[in-house]
Write a protein that binds this DNA or RNA. Sequence first.
DNA 1: CCACAACGTTGCCTAGTGTGCAAAGTTTCC
DNA 2: GGAAACTTTGCACACTAGGCAACGTTGTGG
Lengths: 203, 203
Amino acid sequence: MEPATSLRERKKAATRLALHRAVVELAAAKGLDAVTVDAVADHANVSRRTFSNYFANKEEALLYGERTRYERLLAALRARPENETPWQALTRSVGILVEALAELDPVWIAQLRVVRRHPSLAAHQMALQCTVEQELVGEILERMQRHQASSDPVADAIRARVLAGTFLAATRAAITVWINQQESLSLADVVDAALRTAAERLR
Amino acid sequence: MEPATSLRERKKAATRLALHRAVVELAAAKGLDAVTVDAVADHANVSRRTFSNYFANKEEALLYGERTRYERLLAALRARPENETPWQALTRSVGILVEALAELDPVWIAQLRVVRRHPSLAAHQMALQCTVEQELVGEILERMQRHQASSDPVADAIRARVLAGTFLAATRAAITVWINQQESLSLADVVDAALRTAAERLR
DNA sequence: CCACAACGTTGCCTAGTGTGCAAAGTTTCC
DNA sequence: GGAAACTTTGCACACTAGGCAACGTTGTGG
């Protein structure tokens, strides 16, 4: 997790993180709409132009944490043993997401609040999941070719996409439900329940 | 389908449609990035300001057709008999989507194919589906209370969300696969296959 | 240690966007 | 026919994304 590369790399990572934290902080305080890119850059002590070198817009900066969590998930997925089926590998990797969330970072909580309250962010979050889905599909297809290879490539493509979409829908459902009622249910349990619901025969 | 209301309403609908068609046409010709809102408004013979009265941005205008199709789907779903289970009602409503596409001009569909390859649009489509998902969840919850009412509201919430997400993931998968290979497979068959894949036990 | 290459940061600039406002044009309704 | 309700439009303004080139900082080979 800590490649500890060159000074250059570390500085870049620090700037990226500073920008991310700046936008979360400002958005939590004033609402995302009232936050300008200028203000974010100021708050992170870089120029307006530098912000654009790191993120395309403030939503992307805001969801940077989300993105890294999904990247961790993908890495975990790729590290699963080759002999696991796609669904096995997925369900056994999802713990990574939960753990990442379980580091009850106050920044993360503030971020979730903002994301939930601001509808335009939901769109960007979906956009993010869209790219994740593409990568999931690729990984799933590879695994399928080792396990359930069928003679029909179209059927395989459908299967891989349905699988990826269902998995993401289930985790999304779990997180939504978990956020919507801040009682003592553990996120791990909710995610688990959602994945089992998805895996069972529907209806 | 034709409420045939006042002149005012009809004019507004015409303008909205003109803007939608303008953006599709221009995007198919030059690529979405090379299309400005100004150009779209010009092409539809309205001012740039008027464009903003109808759509927030060009992507929204481009996906207007998609949105109306989903609205038809929701209407069809609500019209299903009350005694059908959620999944039954969903799978029996989905024909509406396919029919709506089938009504379209083949030239139009070719344009859609071109435009839809643009990756940034996938994100906006996801955002659209996000709002649809909300409504699906509401409808599914109502049906579940008539059929599979459980004592655990959290489990019900999870189930409804997983169901909605899976359904949308399956139709999305079908449409993606269908678009990606412009052979003679009928969309109806692909959608059917995807929904059956989703309904079967995963793994 | 130094010079040079590679890379990051910044300011400037331009085309484009989204939206409030008020004036002018339409449609509706009595 | 004329007032009320609504739509379109132009204008203004603050903001955004990204190309470009100058300037700093970091890495590297002699």
